[in-house]
């Protein structure tokens, strides 16, 4: 098990080089899920993986989690190659936490019983009561799991993912089905985990989630990395022209500009004061993302 080189002063948590994975299917033809991915995740960062359904996100993450074998490439997670682990090797699993997509298990146990039970699998677990508190389930601690709402169920999944005090936490589409308030408080929880030193890798469909949480984002499509960047710089978003729109003689006009302040002050002179129904906007992460995915499909 070798370690890869780091970059700058940041320590490397995950390194992937030339990863490929094809699902064999004799009936429908083989399906290429991952077609050569390279990426590095540094310690203590929140790294988001974005991409449409079937892009290879879950396959990539499941290879990192040790659930799947790869066809080729090098993978290192906390300095360990997950494919080289035997079922008996528990020390590496002790250091990672996994929150799966959807689970309905242990419906007849209470929240407290379940979190407490899972704490016994780890060598150095967190305090179960504190973890339940951290995910905001204290009031539900003695309720049966089958009585929880979808959002509460997901919080329990997170509690089980962090009870072992992981160095890396994997979250697969963690807030699907959450109401906006629940998502906000969930994001707070993830930021808190980061502030405690946890490295977080999440896949998500929600662009606003990636924007709110991630230090860096990888966009994956058709098994390949389209771009890795910060949410602010993705797809040249920081350099994209601003769009200034307003009403003139009852018609909406639009100006694309690199310098909206200058444009507006000029307009203000033109209008001799107020610019009617002025809107200044920049492309959202969603606009950028959709144009990236689309330009790929057109290739």
């Amino acid at each position: 098990m070798r370690a890869f080189g780091g970059s700058g002063s940041s320590e490397v948590a995950i390194e992937i080089i030339g990863l490929t994975k094809t699902y064999k299917d004799k009936k429908n033809g083989d399906k290429v899920a991952v077609a050569g991915i390279d990426l590095t995740v540094y310690r203590n960062e929140i790294f988001a993986i974005l991409g449409p359904n079937g892009a290879g996100k879950t396959t990539t993450v499941e290879i990192l989690e040790g659930y799947r074998d790869r066809d080729s490439g090098q993978v290192s997670v906390l300095g360990v190659d997950p494919s080289q682990l035997s079922a008996q090797d528990r020390s590496w699993r002790n250091r990672i936490g996994i929150v799966l997509q959807s689970t309905e298990d242990a419906a007849d146990l209470t929240v407290a019983e379940t979190v407490n039970h899972f704490s016994h699998y780890y060598s150095n677990p967190k305090n179960p009561g504190e973890v339940i508190d951290e995910v905001g389930l204290t009031e539900k601690a003695n309720s049966r799991i089958r009585t929880l709402s979808g959002g509460q169920r997901r919080r329990l999944d997170v509690a089980l993912g962090i009870i072992g005090g992981p160095e890396i936490l994997f979250l697969d589409e963690p807030t699907t089905g959450f109401d906006p308030e629940a998502r906000r408080s969930f994001w707070e929880l993830i930021r808190k985990l980061q502030s405690e030193g946890t490295t977080i890798v999440l896949t998500t469909h929600y662009l606003d989630e990636a924007e709110a949480l991630a230090d860096r984002v990888a966009v994956i499509n058709e098994g390949k990395i389209v771009e890795i960047s910060t949410p602010e710089n993705l797809g040249g978003r920081n350099e994209a022209k601003a769009r200034v729109t307003f009403l003139r003689n009852g018609l909406r006009e639009e100006i694309l500009t690199d310098n909206p302040t200058k444009t507006i002050s000029e307009l203000s002179v033109d209008f001799n004061g107020d610019i009617p129904e002025l809107i200044v906007s920049r492309p959202t992460l969603e606009d950028i993302y959709l144009s990236m995915i689309k330009s790929q499909e057109n290739k």
Binding site: A3, G5, G6, G8, S9, E11, V12, S76, L78, G79, V80, R90, S91, W92, N94, R95, H120, Y121, Y122, S123, N124, E167
Partner: peptide
């Protein structure tokens, strides 16, 4: 700079 990622030493699992 080369990072050296090895197994952290842990108390044993149950």
């Amino acid at each position: 700079m080369t990072t050296n990622l090895t197994h952290a030493s842990y108390a044993k699992n149950p």
